[in-house]
Write a protein that binds this DNA or RNA. Structure first.
Lengths: 200, 200
DNA sequence: CTCCGCTTCGAGAGTTACTATCACTTGGGA
DNA sequence: TCCCAAGTGATAGTAACTCTCGAAGCGGAG
């Protein structure tokens, strides 16, 4: 699955994981804004320069997720087979199922900061925007339309927006309901949206 | 309309307008990131402290809009009279019509930075989030539901998301089409969403 | 195994957004 | 006219982020 990484790449990946783990530990103990990059770097035994090289910003130390690109790829695959809403449902369910419990824990820890800390939340906003653009591209590709089309834009934005709303609700209700159920209910509200029948 | 302002409040408002104008002038000439708060303050003949007191952040110097609260108020009124989608349409059309051409110009200048400069864009994201929360409250109020309801959340998020998509499209296409037309087309895509009939 | 080149790393210095504090000024009511 | 509260500006400090440059270390060629 991921063996063709060079030593360099493996070291980098390991370092990133270690830095993220150390950072979360420190954040949990002292609070996000009371921990400096310098401190994280010291604790992770790398230079501050490296933290910036790897993550770019402090928020991204929390937000970085090595599986993000995989998710987008899956979405691309599923868009080919079914309508966008069903595809999103499918990919989400699959991803959740594949996570090991240790990973689930990490995700929730990170999510807490994404929901709570304004800076981290803003950073997530940027990521969401970027992913929305990618989804616009995918939708355009699979429907033969232009990515700049208003309809394509609206559909992409709506999908992402509903997804994020589900995530936030899930978090706010302490993960009581499984994510896929929440997402199902959320998607029901906008059900019926497609690009094939532009007018109601 | 706005006469009950004390001298203090009038001076503050004037100062804020002057600072924003001066800042935009400088940004237009040198680029957003090449202009420091210190320079803006000097040019506007106030102290840097005051700029921070008034706006809080550099992005908010661009994003500040004295009519934002008015818009939310209008939305509250219209939600009482008609369905959410129609209400949003209505408020937008009204607001656009009321703007004088000098103000339209200012709005577009500011919008350019909101779309182009990452920091400003992120700041706008925060504002959008806050407004989304307010709209959730309004929807809850007018439908007798809880603001935390998943359905309420999804509807609020969808409305705002579609609105922002329309704005961005409008900007990307150089304001060729009037905003209300763009918004109409955008809203058509999600037409049929209501809280009264939760399932399609 | 050895050496060379290119990528990555770390150290240091610098910029600037933002915060906190505090003495000073000014508006608004008595 | 006087007084108090609110607003202002100067100053000092923090920490995120950037740039630069010399020092490693990986990976391929001989």
């Amino acid at each position: 699955m991921r063996a063709q990484l060079s030593l360099r790449e493996r070291k980098k990946l390991q370092a990133m994981r270690r830095i993220q783990e150390v950072a979360l530990e420190l954040f949990d103990e002292y609070g996000y804004s009371n921990v400096t990059i310098e401190r994280i770097a010291a604790e992770a035994e790398v230079s501050p320069s490296s933290v910036y090289r790897y993550f770019g910003t402090k928020e991204y130390v929390v937000l970085y997720d090595e599986y993000d690109p995989v998710a987008v790829q899956s979405l691309d695959d599923e868009f080919a087979a079914q309508d966008p809403v069903a595809a999103l449902r499918r990919v989400t369910t699959d991803m959740v199922e594949e996570l090991e419990s240790r990973e689930v824990d990490l995700v929730r820890r990170r999510m807490r900061y994404a929901m709570t800390e304004p800076d981290v939340r803003a950073g997530m906003g940027r990521q969401v925007e970027q992913i929305t653009t990618e989804i616009r591209g995918l939708l355009a590709k699979h429907t033969g339309r232009d990515p700049g089309d208003l309809d394509v834009r609206v559909l992409a934005a709506a999908l992402v927006s509903v997804f994020m709303t589900a995530i936030e609700y899930w978090h706010d209700t302490d993960y009581r309901e499984p994510l896929h159920t929440v997402l199902d209910r959320a998607l029901d509200v906008i059900d019926g949206i497609t690009l094939d029948r532009p007018r109601g």
